[in-house]
């Protein structure tokens, strides 16, 4: 663990909490893309299947459980509890055009052709484009509420900090994971134009 990855995880945690609190307090999910939240739930579910097979650390296990629980709680708030405030008309991104290519790419380019590893790779590829429906919705509605902007800024910062973590780990442990790095760079670049507006 290093400071870059720790602050990255905390930025990620912050983003999720900001979103949950925003929807809960305002009792509305207006301006929030439910489709991006579906993609995030798929990302965490396919990536954290190793919860039952591999124990890395208490921190790792706790964070995975929190990310899984919060992503499904967010889906519950959007699609069930505050369903009436969900903005169907502006949340129109075809997420199957993200899921399928990510899955096919995961079958072609991975570290090992095993069930868990292909799903982990799929989750890495999917996460890099998971925010597209949200950015698409923000561009369609022409504006993002300030809280949504804070959410996107924290979420974008998390993977940018992970890039610093990968540089640090390459320099100190000579450890690197090219799949995660390339996808992480794509993910951060997608936020850049939003950061520019921010």
């Amino acid at each position: 663990m290093n400071i870059f990855r720790l602050t990255g995880d905390l930025a990620h945690l912050l983003a999720i909490i900001i979103l949950l609190l925003k929807i809960w307090k305002t009792r509305s999910c207006a301006g929030i893309s439910g489709k991006s939240q579906i993609l995030f739930a798929i990302v965490y579910t396919t990536r954290y299947l190793d919860l039952v097979t591999t124990y890395v650390s208490a921190y790792n296990t706790l964070m995975k459980i929190f990310f899984l629980a919060s992503s499904y709680a967010t889906l519950y708030l959007i699609y069930i509890k505050f369903k009436a405030t969900y903005d169907h008309n502006h949340d129109t991104f075809r997420i199957e055009f993200l899921i399928l290519p990510a899955f096919i790419l995961a079958l072609l380019i991975n570290h090992a052709f095993t069930f868990l590893e292909v799903l982990w790779t799929f989750s890495i590829y999917l996460e890099s484009v998971a925010i597209l429906p949200q950015l698409f919705m923000v561009s369609k509605t022409g504006e993002a509420e300030s809280i949504t902007s804070h959410y996107l800024f924290a979420l974008g910062s998390y993977r940018a900090l992970y890039i610093l973590n990968w540089i640090y780990r390459y320099a100190t442990e000579v450890h690197y994971d090219l799949i995660a790095i390339v996808a992480g760079i794509v993910q951060t670049v997608l936020y850049c134009d939003f950061f520019y507006l921010y």
């Binding site: 990855r5 995880d9 990620h12 990536r47 190793d50 591999t54 890395v56 650390s57 790792n60 964070m63 995975k64 990310f67 570290h111 090992a112 095993t114 590893e117 982990w120 992970y162 973590n165 994971d177 995660a180």
Partner: peptide, 10 residues
């Protein structure tokens, strides 16, 4: 042997 990749990052 099949390379077992352990992912220690979230």
């Amino acid at each position: 042997a099949r390379p077992v990749v352990v992912h220690d990052e979230l």
